[in-house]
Design a protein around this nucleic acid. Sequence first.
RNA 1: GGGGAGAUUCCCGAGUGGUCAAAGGGGGCAGACUGUAAAUCUGUUGGCUUACGCCUUCGAAGGUUCAAAUCCUUCUCUCCCCA
Length: 415
Amino acid sequence: MNAGLARLQERGFIQQCTDIEGLSKAMDESPITFYEGCDPTGPSLHIGHMVPYFAIRHLHESGHHGIVLMGGGTARIGDPSGKSSMRQIISYEEIDANTKLFLAQIDNFLKFDGATLYSANNKDWLADLNYIDFLRDIGRHFSVNRMLSFEAYKMRLETGLSFIEFNYQLLQSFDYLQLYKRYGCRLQIGGDDQWGNIVAGIELIRRVEGAECFGLTFPLVMTSDGKKMGKTEKGALFLDPAMVSPYDFFQYWRNVADSDVERFLLMFTFLPTAECRELAAKSDAALNESKARLAWEVTALIHGREEADKALAAAKAAFGGSGTAAAGADKDLIPSKALPRADIAAGIGALDLFVLAGLASSKSEARRLVQQGGAVVNDRKVEDEKSVIDASWLDADGALVLRAGKKRVFRILAK
RNA sequence: GGGGAGAUUCCCGAGUGGUCAAAGGGGGCAGACUGUAAAUCUGUUGGCUUACGCCUUCGAAGGUUCAAAUCCUUCUCUCCCCA
């Protein structure tokens, strides 16, 4: 098999391919131009978006040419694939703003060079389409009967599917055709929920141009307990540090299930395959250390080495033995907030303090935390919900290390 | 356009005049056990309150009633069937 393809396969990126032998052969003959599309529907990429970008880096490093297609046009419609209800219609301004944000994040990760790796925007050919011409030239190649047989639509036939979304597949197919004509793009990659759309595009190119193109999908990454990868209680694991801090990002990976370590190392880092397998083969405490490695590697790729180092140090300070006894320098990395020393001297209700630190969203929640024995200030358990925290609770550094349960830590600094 | 069904707390879903802050499950949070894992067990899960209790919440707005998630009116939205 072609080296680039083999690399994807051994790292677990391949779910389905329209013609793996044909594709392998084409890739052996000459570098192939491939694309992956993504609709800018939110203010930041999240980790779920990243699988294709990791794949793009692997393929690019193997000598192939990649196009990142921003769905500035398709985002106006909404892709029904894999969604149980209609997507919110987004304003054009918002789409344009999101596109910029997405591209900046992608460029940061992929480093576009403009020649072998670049971006395109389907708004350029979709925004001003003539409806009648489109129906005559493109629409006639699509069989409604066939479209209805796709899984993506079957599901929605139960809950309702509007005409606007029903057209999404035509537009995505048209994208592929355009990229084929403009850049000689012959491979589309994407999440497995895109299978139907990808196949439809290949079909369209075959009918219109008589050319053979390929499609390749990645597995939809789920955690081993069946949740969508990258979803946390608070929402998706966004790349924007203002939305998800590098520390929280790091902690997500630090806490993955044992059984996910190998897959995640292979897909979300660039460590050699053998090393990934070795790290994942460990057990007990050693495997736990592998998770720290995984967390560091992924954080370094997304937020840079410096942030990864900081997050690692902060995690050590927070979890390495008793938090307050840990080495002084590292403690500064725990998420913190300053509070006037006078306020602390005057005394603050423990419940209010936990709310202030963001460790509880309401006083009732803080009260529950105390009642259940999960509230700790500088290693002293808060026994009474009426407790007042004052200067006598401060540690040697003039700080209060608040803990809510075992995993959440926050530091209040007296200023 | 006609006919039917429906909208309940983070999600699914019970509830058809007072005993409803609303069963059950999921999820979340906390505790025990651990390796910052999984599984398991226990507790908890609208807000304010030390507490008695008070306040807000059953699609929206009105109304009936001592009392409404529950009854009536209008509206909005969703699904199904017919055209």
